[in-house]
Design a protein around this nucleic acid. Sequence first.
DNA 1: ATTGTTCATTTTGTATGCAGAATACAAAAT
DNA 2: ATTTTGTATTCTGCATACAAAATGAACAAT
Lengths: 229, 229
Amino acid sequence: MNNSQELTPIVRRPLHEEAADRLRDLIVQGRLVAGIRLNERLLTLQLGVSRTPLREAFKVLATEGLVELLPNRGAIVSQMDPVRLAETLAVMGALEALAGEFACMNATEAQINEIRALHYEMLAHHARGDLAGYFKFNQAIHLKIVKYSGNAVLFNAYRQMNGNVRRARYMANLSQERWDAAVREHGAILAALSARDVKRIKGLLSDHLAHKLSSVLADLKTLSTRQAA
Amino acid sequence: MNNSQELTPIVRRPLHEEAADRLRDLIVQGRLVAGIRLNERLLTLQLGVSRTPLREAFKVLATEGLVELLPNRGAIVSQMDPVRLAETLAVMGALEALAGEFACMNATEAQINEIRALHYEMLAHHARGDLAGYFKFNQAIHLKIVKYSGNAVLFNAYRQMNGNVRRARYMANLSQERWDAAVREHGAILAALSARDVKRIKGLLSDHLAHKLSSVLADLKTLSTRQAA
DNA sequence: ATTGTTCATTTTGTATGCAGAATACAAAAT
DNA sequence: ATTTTGTATTCTGCATACAAAATGAACAAT
C-alpha cells in the first residue's frame, strides 16, 4: 500500500496542554508580565475552556517555574528577580558546555551546517545593527547546539530554563563592544564545533555564557541604580 | 524574640500538592514500578481525595518526568530506560561539578563540617559492607553539596533528576573494587571542598559522576544480557 | 485619621455529573 | 480454531455545582 497521501494519525491534544502552551507563550513573550494575577474566570472566557483544564495548566506552568500558586489566592506570573536570573544563567552555562561536548561528538555534518547557516543569518543582523533579529538567531543557535547534543534530558532542562530566562528581556541595552565580542565568540564556537574540538568548545561555551551572565548582571545593576535615582 | 517553641507559619497544603508528594514518594521508592497504570478511581479511594486534585497531581508529576500521560488512556509511571538514565546521569554530572565550584566558594565551615560528618557515617557503612546504608549517606552528601552551592535553580534541577534516577535502583550489584574506588573519590572530594580548591573539585566531581555512569551502564548491560540468556 | 467589624461579592478548592473514548468480552463469520 | 464484528462496561476529559476562603465596601469605634 504505497499511498501517496499521508496517513497521519489523528491527534486531539488535551485542552490542558493547549492552554498551557498558550499561557507559556504569553508569559515567555512578556505579554503576561511578572507579578500579574491570572484570573481564572477571565482566562476561561478568553481561552474558551472550563476551569478544570485551565487549572491543570496552571499546575504544569508552576512546576516549570513560570507561575507561582498562592493557596486560596490564585496564580501569578512568577517573578524573575536578578538573583534567580543569575543562578539560572550559571546553570545554563554548565548545561551548554556539556551540550557542546556532546554536539561535537554526535552532531551530523548536516546539523552543523544548519547551525552554520543560522550563524551567518545572525551575522547579517549584527552587521545591520538589528538587535532583535540578532537575538532571534542567537537563541536559535544556542538551542540547536543543545538539541544536537543528542541528549534529550539535557535539552529539556535547557529549554525550560531558557524560557524562564527569556522573558526577563535583559539584554535590551547591550553595549556595542559586548555585542561585537559575543559575535566573535560565536565564530570561535562554530569553528570548534566544525573541527569537533571537544576540549575547546567546552571552554568557549562556558566563557560565552559567563560573559553573558556578567553583562546581564551589569545591566541589571545600572537599571536598579537608575530606578533608585 | 528567642521563643523556644517553633513559630511555624500555618500551612494548609492543597490536596493536589499532598497527592503529588505521596505519589512521588511511591514512585521514587519504587513501590509504584515503571509501566503500571495509575487507576484514578482506585487512587481516589486510597488517597481519600476526589479525582480533580488527583488529576492535577498527575500533571505535576508528568512535567517532572515521573509519569507519562496517555491521552484518553490515563497515566502510567514513566519508564526509565538505559538511554534516558545515561543521559540524566551525564547532566547530573555537569550540574554537580558546577555545584562543587559554588560550594567551594559559598559554603560555610559549618556546612562543610556537616558534609564531613555525613562522609564519616558513609565510611562506617562502607566498612561494614552495608550497601543500603552507604547509599543513603552517599545520596545525602551529593545532595548537600548541591544544596550548599547556594544556587536554588541548580538545586531544584538536580533534585528533580535525582528523584527520576533513584528509582532505577541501578547499583544493586556494585563491585567491591568500584565501591572502594568511589569511597576514595569521596575522600578526595571532601578534601578539595575543605581546601576550597575550586579547580580540583570540579574535576573530581565530574570524574566521580562519569565513573558512576559507566558503572551503571556496565551493570545495565549485564542485566540485559542476563535477561536475553 | 486609623483601626476594627460586618456583610455582600468574588474567587478559589474540591467534588461530582455527563459525554465520549477505550477496553473487554461475547457472538458471528471466515 | 481463529479472526472479525458488535455490544456492554469501564475509564478518562471536561464542565459544572457547591462549599470554603478571600476580597472589598460600608460603617462604627477609637
